[in-house]
Design a binder for these strands. Structure first.
Length: 891
DNA sequence: CTGGTGCCCTAC
DNA sequence: TTAGGTAGGGCACCAG
């Protein structure tokens, strides 16, 4: 029976079939897991791919023919164990110019690392030798995560396996055993084709455990499964014997068959806990029992799968980054929320409140997690209710943040699996695009880490000194995609860099790009770089999605609109990732000259424009990397702000107020004209300067990366950068105070500003502020070491750090702590060293805080506000004392 | 009290 | 022992 359909690939792996001793040759089958457009889960068994890599002799190449010595060496390689064949040579571009490259086919992918090692010992240069075998399917065939399949059905979930008939069929097709999916399809690489991206009707499984603090056992569990195709959700809850809870949870995973597994902090808590409990409840030899407890992978519950250390039956932590298991993708809602929202605090209830303020009833804290054993003994029903709710909330969070659709878009643009987009590194995304192009253009792909180590840091962007104080009518100009534009404009690429060691130096008179650092790159007319070409394609792709988005908006089609929005956003993210990867010290296609040339050109460009503007008499107030804040030439007496009372007066028809408003509008218009004119005049082909914002007022106390502005064009809003209002390690009393002060500052209300600051500092010093407004929060690192957290690897002096002491206190109290999380605390006595702090206890009245150090908070508040009030004549000291001391020099 | 160091978090 | 970068402000701690 044939299968025809479109699927979205979640993840994949390979299965090696070694020779059976009856003359069959070894082969490798790819197992690709995903879900079809029609909603079935699918495992594709793909045959026809062989693991290969490339080699080139390190010896000198005369440029014409292969020496007999090299030919002999090739024959030696052919006879090595594990090698099937060597073909070639093909001429490829390497960092030493054109070289002959041979393609080596290995028997199995897992043999490649050792072959690589021994060949490089016998003076071979290795290329394309560290690319995961699964990736070859996508790289060699132009595929992304959305595939059209035309294959043969070898198994269906509902079919009985009488006499192991189905198992045999799957194994015959090269499978490892019956897969835990709806349909298993066998096909050849040729039976696959690329298909248009579509929203895959994924299933997401979210779960939560309640555990005993005393015994570390699982008390109860809940799960919620969402079908993205229909929006339907199913709920499950479990209590009773611990082993039966784990078994039932596993049964639900296997029967609902999700593509994505989520939960809140499952990476660091729930999954490790399930893993620990499985190890306690079943001996390692008893794989059957273990499979029943935690065999969540999309594969057969058999011994071979239980033994696999990577993407097998059991979820495993591959690195510190992410969990892997066969056929599914693990996505922690905590991590996603943290990345997208940067919340002040990271508890589930805090994040839920942030996202769904109107449903505050839904996420009220009604169970005290720190006294879970007691709660479970006294009111298990409420605890289970709470558990069910916390299993559902991660689905709401992922939905609100559109995480799945965004990752899917990244996967589609970068042409990788969903799992790679969700959990992979940036370099994997870039690799996916760059290696395709390298293969197409006969450019050898070096191994990761083969580049010379970068010594020290490269110099980054230029940041202009800020003039402290208020500045009226500032036009903000930005270079559009500055680093990508520079890479395109100057043809910066691994393949265009001119190295003195290369044999084919540019001929006399040939045009080259010379960076301010002296590094040289070939002109695009001689050889266009891969990276510039890719970036141009991505820029074009983004334009296409942007105009499709516009069209969908006009047509009133929200589904198409959000699709193109996600796609254009994914393209943007990807484009901006290029520089970082190429400037890193270890990426395969990098060289230290690439990154430093890009930033050198950037500094050169921006400094040139700044000095030209200043020569023209336009003062530059500030500039950071790709932006310029420049004074507009408006009348010096033109008003830049309208005070509250003047606004009222104008509405009441006051003549003077009306007139002032007219002059304000004129000033605004002249700023807009100026901004647009400057943008046009300073734009070049590959360096487009845009008039991004118009500010009626700009304020900074004189520190780089810290400023405030009143945006009046193209929209009206307050723009704040760097200040405490933006920081998640500040306390809310400070941030709200500062924000209000900024509105005073921008409205030219200096007196009100100082008065307000004084009042707020005073209230704090007198202890009239609620402790809940004084919560400090900082992230805390640490490494798990046999059940304990070790802080000494991450901190030179752990116990002097407030966040470490708070983390330790949390652990002591039986509250959760996992590495990287933010911990909240209140300073109770800062006169001692180190200062005394107390954790903020979410579920207790007033956070469990009885008193705080008012003097400490008042001083810290005054220090922050003082930097601003100083521009209006008041220092921090004066804010605390509440009056301006008449000093010796004040007469 | 000062300057150096370690750390966090932010702007690009 | 794992994989985007640098510039920068500011706080707490600690030695002298």
């Amino acid at each position: 029976m044939t299968y025809k359909g479109d699927i979205g690939v979640v993840s994949g792996r390979y299965h090696s079939l070694d020779t059976d001793g009856q003359g069959s040759s070894p082969r490798t089958v790819l197992e690709v897991f995903g879900r079809s457009k029609t909603g079935e889960s699918v495992c594709l068994l793909i045959s026809g791919l062989k693991p290969t890599f490339e080699i080139s002799p390190m010896s000198v190449w005369n440029g014409t023919d292969v020496s007999p010595e090299v030919q002999q060496k090739i024959r030696d390689v052919e006879h090595l164990n594990g090698i099937v064949s060597v073909t070639g040579p093909t001429m490829k571009l390497t960092d030493l110019g054109q070289r002959p490259v041979w393609r080596v086919t290995a028997q199995q992918p897992y043999l490649v690392p050792n072959l690589r090692k021994s060949l490089s010992k016998s003076s071979w240069q290795i290329y394309s030798g560290d690319i995961p075998f699964l990736n070859r399917l996508f790289l060699d065939n132009g595929f992304g995560m959305h595939l059209s399949v035309n294959g043969t059905v070898v198994d269906r979930r509902e079919q009985p396996d009488d006499d192991y008939e189905r198992t045999r069929a799957v194994k015959k097709a090269g499978g490892a055993g019956r897969y835990s999916v709806d349909i298993t399809v066998a096909c050849d690489v040729g039976d696959l084709s690329e298909c248009e991206p579509f929203p895959v009707p994924f299933r997401i499984f979210s779960f939560d455990l309640e555990t005993s603090i005393e015994h570390e056992t699982v008390l109860c569990a809940a799960a919620c499964v969402e079908h993205l195709g229909t929006g339907v959700r199913e709920e499950f809850s479990f209590r009773g014997e611990e082993a039966s809870i784990l078994e039932n949870l596993t049964l639900v995973v296997r029967s609902t068959d999700p593509d994505i597994i989520t939960g809140y902090n499952i990476d660091n808590f729930d999954l490790p806990r399930l893993n620990d409990r499985m190890q306690v409840l079943a001996r390692s030899k008893d794989w059957r029992k273990r499979a029943q407890l935690f065999g969540w992978g999309r594969v057969e519950q058999c011994e071979a799968e239980a033994k696999r250390t990577r993407s097998g039956l059991f979820p495993r932590r591959q690195s510190t980054r992410a969990w892997t298991l066969a056929g599914r993708s693990v996505m922690d809602a905590w991590w996603q929320a943290r990345m997208a929202l940067r919340p002040q605090r990271e508890t589930l209830s805090f994040v839920s409140n942030l996202l769904f303020p109107e449903d505050s009833e839904k996420h009220k804290m009604d169970v005290d997690a720190s006294k879970m054993d007691e709660e479970w003994a006294n009111r298990p029903d409420e605890v289970l209710e709470y558990c069910i709710r916390d299993a559902a909330l991660p689905l709401d969070i992922l939905g609100a943040l559109q995480v799945v659709r965004r990752k899917e878009a990244v996967a589609a643009v970068a042409k990788v699996t969903f799992d790679t987009a969700a959990n992979g590194s940036t370099s994997q995304l870039i690799d996916s695009l760059v290696i395709r192009l390298a293969d197409a253009e006969n450019i050898a792909v070096p191994l990761t880490g083969s580049a010379e180590a970068k010594e020290g840091q490269i110099t980054g962007g230029y940041v202009h000194e800020v003039d402290a104080g208020l500045h009226p009518w500032i036009a903000v100009l930005d270079f559009k995609s500055m680093y990508p534009s520079i890479m395109i404009g100057h043809n910066i690429c691994y393949t265009t860099r001119i190295d003195p060691a290369q044999p084919d130096q540019p001929i006399e008179g040939q045009e080259v790009h010379v960076a301010p650092t002296g590094a040289r790159f070939r002109h695009q007319s001689v050889r266009k770089g891969m990276v510039p070409r890719l970036l141009e394609q991505l820029m074009h792709q983004r334009d296409v999605h942007k105009s499709a988005l516009k069209q969908a908006k006009a047509d009133g089609d929200p589904v198409v609109e959000s699709f193109h929005d996600a796609m254009q956003y994914a393209v943007k993210i990807l484009m901006n990732s290029f520089y970082g990867v190429f400037a890193s010290g270890f990426y395969r296609f990098t060289h230290r000259d690439l990154g430093s040339s890009i930033t050198a050109w950037a500094r050169h460009n921006i400094k040139a424009i700044i000095s030209q503007l200043e020569d023209e008499g336009h003062g530059v107030v500030y500039s950071d990397t790709d932006s310029i804040f420049v004074r507009s030439p408006v009348d010096s007496d033109a008003p830049s702000s309208i005070r509250e009372d003047e606004y009222q007066a104008r509405l009441d028809g006051d003549k003077a107020a009306l007139q002032k408003y007219e002059r304000w509008k004129q000033a605004k218009q002249s700023m807009i004209d100026f901004g647009l004119e400057i943008a046009e005049r300073y734009s070049r082909d590959s360096a487009v300067l845009e008039f991004e914002k118009g500010l009626s007022v700009f304020f900074s106390h004189g520190a780089k990366k810290r400023y405030v502005g009143q945006v009046v064009w193209p929209s009206e809003e307050m723009l704040i950068r760097g200040y405490e209002t933006q920081r998640t390690d500040s306390f809310s009393y400070l941030t709200t105070t500062m924000k209000k002060m900024f509105t005073h500052a921008l409205s030219d209300e200096g007196d009100e500003l100082v008065k307000y600051a004084l009042e707020r500092v005073k209230a704090l010093r007198e202890g009239r502020v609620d402790a809940s407004e004084l919560i400090l929060a900082k992230s805390c690192k640490g490494r798990m070491k046999n059940g304990k957290v070790d802080f000494t690897k991450d901190y030179a002096n752990p116990d002097s750090m407030a966040q470490v002491r708070v983390a330790k206190a949390r652990i002591e109290l039986g509250l959760g702590f996992t590495s990287g999380m933010k911990v909240s605390y209140i300073v109770t006595d800062a006169t001692q060293r180190p200062m005394r702090v107390q954790p903020w206890l979410e579920m207790e009245e007033n956070g469990g805080i009885l008193q705080y150090d008012g003097q400490f908070y008042a001083e810290r508040l005054a220090a922050a506000l003082g930097r601003i009030t100083e521009a209006f004549g008041w220092t921090a000291k004066e804010l605390v004392s509440g009056n301006k001391q008449t000093s010796l020099f004040s007469f």
